[in-house]
Design a protein around this nucleic acid. Structure first.
Lengths: 125, 125
DNA sequence: GGTTTTCTGCTAAAGAACTAGTAGAACCAG
DNA sequence: CTGGTTCTACTAGTTCTTTAGCAGAAAACC
């Protein structure tokens, strides 16, 4: 349960793996927003592998890389940091920021409220 | 309205400035969790100043550093990144993570719900 | 079967981040 | 005053990040 943390570029790559599932270098490269050299993407994946955040298995000539850390775990670390260092530990402040002026409609707000309601329900058990 | 982003250490320092308000190098140093050399802290503050994120004015012999970017703005950038890259844009996933198993009691959940309700109210007008 | 493409392995270089030392000025205690 | 303390300015080393080239193997094309 160690802390999981990524550099910006590593996060870009992880985002692709989370979104698309196990992918080859070419596939990751294609789905990245920035145009990077093939070898650059490969290097990032190698770094991630060295850190134990992804693994790969052979698939024909190419390698297919699989994320070893779940979104949720990365999210927990990242959110914890944002919460602690920026919002001084105040979840309310964080939530207020999350829903402030970012094209968010009433339907979504209600969905968010349901998340809290479900959590409240569980607490009641 | 440019994007504001900090390195880990810079964020530690900004956190102190946000929490305590304008501070001298010694003060910042004292409130940091990690034991860093005086000059190290000074260097970080200089970097932040070079990036335009803090300013300083003389106060006797020492300098007092003031944050130029608000928590909120930094939070917006940071949250946006976490939201987009880790939670694939799903605020619900993010919120679920935020309230999951992190010593959070019913009272706090209700406070969070109120944040959403207030926002909903405003939307209705 | 030869040529082109695609892939990994190795290497590397520029820049940023992080840390801190040393020098010298300014201030303070007695 | 004199000696210690506190402060900034300048400098610098180590590591991490980011980017990518080149060589050679494998595959695919025709």
């Amino acid at each position: 349960m160690a802390e999981v943390s990524f550099t910006d570029r590593e996060l870009d790559v992880m985002a692709v793996l989370w979104e698309r599932g196990p992918s080859t270098v070419s596939e990751v490269r294609q789905y990245l927003d920035d145009p990077l050299a093939y070898t650059t993407v490969l290097t990032v994946l190698r770094t991630l592998e060295a850190k134990g955040y992804v693994s790969h298995e052979e698939e024909g000539k190419a390698h297919r890389y699989t994320p070893l850390v779940a979104r949720d775990r990365a999210g927990k670390t990242a959110l914890g940091q944002v919460l602690g260092k920026i919002f001084g530990g105040s979840r309310e402040m964080l939530l207020a920021n999350l829903v402030r002026e970012r094209g968010i409609d009433a339907a979504e707000l209600r969905r968010l409220r349901r998340v809290l309601d479900e959590r409240l329900g569980k607490g009641d058990k």
